[in-house]
């Protein structure tokens, strides 16, 4: 027993030593976090990067939403902060300020392609052909009826517009930690709100206040939205185009403004609810953490994010080669 005690004491001392030794050791794995939309693409690139570059370790990719990614990214400079933040929207001024305050001054934006946001419902249900104004009218807390702002009276999609199915309104949207939410807000809700023509003197949040009884905010991944649809087949969910494409057996997609969401319609600019995807690189970590530049180049290479590349197979909508070349040049030139 006494021997065991001495052994334990030795082990504790050793563990303490190991802990201090860790301070000195510099990280040699690229650390990425952020948008759950970008996560599948970034994970694939990370894996392929590890396989293609034997001298670098496979980067580690975390999620947490675009906002969560930026808050980790802007925590400071050093081994225990992430190197790259994935984002499904451009960085906000407030986030840049937070970054600067923490000493993260060299932020390099890299756009690598597009994603579309789709409205999808259970495959067994009726078809939906939505327009932004219909979605806005279905979910806004207050809507305009006869020129006055009244509490939302609609209970079924058919009441919003006769062309829609007679199905109770229920919409699962991503919560505000997701970049998807912003695109949804901007391209669908705000667009619909403007079209609806609010009366003079309407409160400022008239465009952004949702009815809590029909709108479910999902803070998790799209699988959570899918689970919501499975438990209540009347729900219409907001998904990424790539997620929908992987689950066409259970989901049915709605058209927006009469356009069927697809890679082609997004690239052509016909489908309104699409957005560019980004990742942000901490310039100060280039040179300290090995492989960051190579990772960026590899990510933007034709075999990954290019036309016909691996990411396209995973649902990314590639941007033109000229655009990619421009972005890569800007990245290599340094801080903007």
């Amino acid at each position: 027993m006494r021997n065991a005690l001495y052994a334990s004491a030795a082990v504790i001392a050793l563990a303490a030593f190991g802990t201090t030794a860790a301070f000195a050791q510099s990280r040699d794995t690229i650390q990425v976090a952020g948008s759950s939309t970008v996560l599948p693409f970034a994970s694939i690139v990370a894996e392929e990067f590890g396989a293609a570059f034997p001298e670098f370790k496979t980067p580690v990719v975390g999620s947490g939403g675009t906002g969560g990614g930026f808050s980790q990214f802007c925590a400071g400079v050093g081994d225990n902060t992430i190197d790259i933040a994935n984002a499904s929207r451009p960085i906000k001024a407030g986030e840049t300020e937070a970054c600067t305050a923490a000493g993260v001054t060299d932020i390099r934006e890299v756009q690598f392609g597009y994603d579309g946001i789709v409205f999808a419902s259970a495959a067994s249900g009726p078809d939906f052909a939505l327009t932004p104004i219909q979605v806005y009218k279905a979910i806004a807390a207050n809507v305009v009826v006869d020129g006055a702002l009244v509490p939302n009276p609609y209970t079924s999609w058919a009441e919003v517009d006769a062309s829609l199915p007679d199905q109770p309104i229920a919409l699962a949207v991503p919560a505000s930690n997701h970049g998807t939410r912003e695109v949804f807000q901007e391209r669908v809700v705000t667009a619909g709100c403007e079209e609806a023509g609010l009366p003079e003197g309407a409160p400022e949040d008239a465009c952004t206040a949702f009815r809590q009884d029909v709108v479910v905010e999902i803070s998790g991944d799209y699988t959570e939205t899918l689970a919501r649809l499975n438990s209540d087949p009347n729900t219409v969910g907001v998904f990424g185009l790539s997620f929908y494409e992987q689950n066409t057996d259970t989901l049915k997609v709605a058209t927006v403004n009469g356009v069927v969401p697809s890679k082609e319609s997004v690239v052509a600019g016909e489908y309104p609810v699409s957005r560019p995807l980004f990742f942000y690189v901490k310039g100060q970590h280039i040179g300290t953490i090995p492989g960051i530049e190579e990772y960026v180049q590899f990510f933007l290479s034709e075999q990954m994010a290019g036309d016909g590349g691996i990411l396209e197979a995973a649902g990314l909508i590639p941007q033109t080669a000229e655009k990619t070349a421009e972005i890569l040049a800007a990245f290599e030139a340094g801080a903007q």
Binding site: Q31, V32, A33, L39, S43, G50, T58, V60, G62
Partner: peptide, 17 residues
């Protein structure tokens, strides 16, 4: 503590991701 990241390698030491 960041352990929900996607890690495509076997951690050889307790200090690896």
């Amino acid at each position: 503590i960041g352990m929900k990241a996607f890690v495509a390698s076997v951690p050889l030491t307790p200090l690896d991701q």
